[in-house]
Design a protein around this nucleic acid. Sequence first.
DNA 1: ATAGTTTTGAACCGAACGTTTCAAAACAAA
DNA 2: TTTGTTTTGAAACGTTCGGTTCAAAACTAT
Lengths: 195, 195
Amino acid sequence: MATGRPRTFDNTEALKSALQVFWQKGYEGTSLSDLTEAMKINRSSLYATFGSKEQLFNQALDLYFEGPPKLTSAAFNESTARAVAERFLHVTADSVTNPSTPRGCLTIRGAIACGEDAESVRQELVSRRVESEMALRHRFEQAKSPGDLPAGSDPAALARYIMTIAEGMSIRAADGSTREELQDVIDIAMQAWPT
Amino acid sequence: MATGRPRTFDNTEALKSALQVFWQKGYEGTSLSDLTEAMKINRSSLYATFGSKEQLFNQALDLYFEGPPKLTSAAFNESTARAVAERFLHVTADSVTNPSTPRGCLTIRGAIACGEDAESVRQELVSRRVESEMALRHRFEQAKSPGDLPAGSDPAALARYIMTIAEGMSIRAADGSTREELQDVIDIAMQAWPT
DNA sequence: ATAGTTTTGAACCGAACGTTTCAAAACAAA
DNA sequence: TTTGTTTTGAAACGTTCGGTTCAAAACTAT
């Protein structure tokens, strides 16, 4: 049973607001004033609840990975390697142009934006992205045996290719590209797929 | 004829040093102390010579565009649209993995890293990148008449595609990808080219 | 030498940064 | 009502930020 003065904000709602701000401005581009304003809590409550700016960012990051990145995993249910790749790109294009969230990918913006003092944050973000590439690669390797992919094709290179397109789309979305423009890119990109 | 106390630094050498720092840390990630240390000049000289941090950045940007981006323009001398695209990507891959410069592209890193107070800087960087895309598009449009590109192909979409690959490679390079890995990506990417 | 001009170095500016402190406020339990 | 506990709001901490000021320094011209 809770005692003492009750808090005036919802914990996860505040975290969602923090995520939006970090997503939009990057880690170092976000100030404490930005956060307290968006989360509608004061500094004392922020530090009592979330620890510090960096700890808050890490918690917001965990929340983020339950969102857009999680959606791409649905692509792995497709039956062919080609369908997996195409679906992966489509989900990515939808995510990075979602009008109800900031544009682009938090991990890319965050990893590039942060200075050397936040190097540990950067490494975390990069390795998370490498995991996605490895998942794609693994799926493509499995596709070779049933002849789903030609014998000569290189699963690792294909996974790199798809991730490069996805990351490029994230940049373009942040620059203002529309979902339709990214769809055009995907249409062309998939023509490179081995048959 | 120059009079007064002679300056102790070389103007363009100092600008080169500033470029390196901006390239590595982004606009907002670079402090005045970072700059004066790298350029080996003090604040007074910096402001007397270059005006302000933002004006210094713009001058460093001009210098940058005489470097890596200029090299990509050599691609436009190729005789076919396909060769232009492939050369453009190869030059980009070489640039973003050049061991004697920071990894990745200054315009991408700078545009993503900066907050809203540096919005004018961001716009400048984005528009510079749009210019590259427009140059590619224009070259591809010219390629349609001699049958260099199939009648059904979309020069604008192809230019977007090539730029997306280039921007994706820049991110990967910043994350640590090698030149060879990027070459593999280009090999696959060019298979999408219309015949 | 002397005067005139430009650069240098260091101190300083107000503002904003992330973080901490603490008394007043708002509740439950006694 | 009193006591105990927790949150709140605001003020303040030291540091760093981009930018400025100014006297001393280092040169050329007279």
